[in-house]
Amino acid sequence: MKNKYIWEDPKTVYINKEKGHAIAMPFDSVDDALSGEQSKYKQSLNGKWKFFWQRGLDNQPDGFEKPGYDVSNWDEIS
């Protein structure tokens, strides 16, 4: 019997899904890695981010990628 929906096929596992991977976090020593503490190199990206949405690449704000660019009128996203 043919499956009615593609997600019912057990061979289909990667539709709109990232393939499995391992995250490697650096530590200064083996003892630090085995301590159970977080790596001092881990940086959270949680918080508020300034966000400017536009359709396509035409008419981008000049210099938006530079540190000091005024983004005070941009929206914020979490």
Results as ranks from 00 to 15, higher is better:
Lys48Tyr: 04
Asp9Ile: 06
Lys17Glu: 14
Glu37Asp: 10
Val30Lys: 01
Ile15Gly: 02
Lys42Tyr: 15
Asn46Tyr: 02
Gly56Thr: 01
Lys50His: 11
Lys42Glu: 12
Glu18Phe: 09
Asp9His: 06
Asp58Pro: 01
Ser29Asn: 01
Tyr14Gly: 04
Pro10Phe: 08
Gln38Thr: 08
Ser78Ala: 06
Phe64Gln: 02
Glu76Ala: 07
Asp62Cys: 02
Trp49Tyr: 12
Leu34Val: 04
Asp31Cys: 00
Gly56Ile: 06
Gly56Cys: 05
Gly36Tyr: 09
Gln43Asp: 09
Gln43Met: 15
Glu8Ala: 07
Lys2Ser: 13
Val30Met: 14
Ile77Arg: 14
Pro67Trp: 03
Lys40Thr: 13
Gly63Ala: 10
Phe64Ala: 12
Thr12Met: 10
Tyr14Glu: 11
Glu65Lys: 03
Tyr14Ser: 13
Lys66Phe: 02
Ser39Leu: 11
Ile6Arg: 14
Ala24Phe: 15
His21Ala: 15
Leu45Arg: 12
Met25Trp: 03
Trp7Lys: 15
Glu18Tyr: 02
Glu76Leu: 12
Asp9Tyr: 11
Val71Asn: 12
Gly20Val: 09
Asn16Pro: 01
Lys40Ser: 13
Ala33Gly: 13
Lys17Ala: 10
Val13Arg: 13
Asn3Glu: 09
Asp58Asn: 13
Lys19Gln: 15
Gln54Cys: 03
Phe52Gln: 10
Trp53Pro: 03
Asp58Phe: 07
Lys66Asn: 03
Arg55Asn: 12
Glu8Tyr: 11
Tyr5Ser: 07
Gly56Leu: 04
Asp32Ala: 15
Ser39Val: 07
Ser39Met: 07
Glu18Cys: 05
Pro10Asp: 11
Gly68Pro: 00
